[in-house]
Amino acid sequence: MVAPAMTFLAIFTFYPLANLVYLSFFRYNLISDKVFVGLTNYRNLLFVKKDFLQALENTVVYSFAVVFFTILLAILFALWLEKDSWFNRFIQKSMFTPYLIAMVSTAYIWSWIFDVNSGLLNAALALIDVSPLRWLNDSSLAIWCIVIVSVWKSLGYYLLIVLASLKSIPREIIEAAELDNTPWLRKFVRIILPMISPQIFFLLITITISSFRVFDSVQVMTNGGPGNATDVLVTYVHRYAFQMNMRVGYASAAGSVLLFILMVLTIFYFRFLGRKVHYQ
């Protein structure tokens, strides 16, 4: 019964991955013959060229920011929208809708919001007499703009998960705490947070992994620019494989490094899952 699924995964995921690692030891542009170059691609990647480390750094900054803000906001909003009312449900639904929309469409709207000359944000800043910012064009701000869009797009989804886990906390525990007149913050830290921590940890891992794979939002909004201020690992691989003279071998080395990072995260994830099962 598992065979069909495993066949699909073997052909379309694992074979291409093995091929990726294999190609990373060659100089290869798809057309001319492969030339074995050993670890040269990795050396260039990590020690000669500076742009890969820049892309790696961007990816790490982006991932940490997305994870931090998504989880923080998801918890805050969940506590705030916890009460079951028509209005709260409506807000939850509204917050979930961006999750359903194609990144291509989202990017159009946000590019306009961030626009330097006629964008909504600078128009708002003008109202309060603040000089306009350059948003996506500013190399130190650009990555944060992408973070904002990513958080905006997926917050509603993670909010639902946190909400559901809040609702799974037995009422008696919360009521007991309320009778005790426990201050709100302490109630949250001492009682609620520990109760939902397995879900939060699950989110932490899944959001981290999906952040390391970020591609669409960067590709459509900045194409990695300005310079390479928003270049991330996946756009890097894609650019070298498809645009820079099809340097497939070199791009494969970059892809293999990404794969390695994802594997480390996966193993971390497994350890956690194993522990969770153990505790149950």
């Binding site: 995921t13 990726l20 996946v234 892809g255 994802l262 994830y269």
Partner: peptide, 24 residues
Amino acid sequence: VMLALVMAAFMVPTQITFITVYIM
């Protein structure tokens, strides 16, 4: 092993597998 493979597959972005799949 299969469970591990399923989980691992979940982590893989299509942008690093597409060249091989394309040629296929």
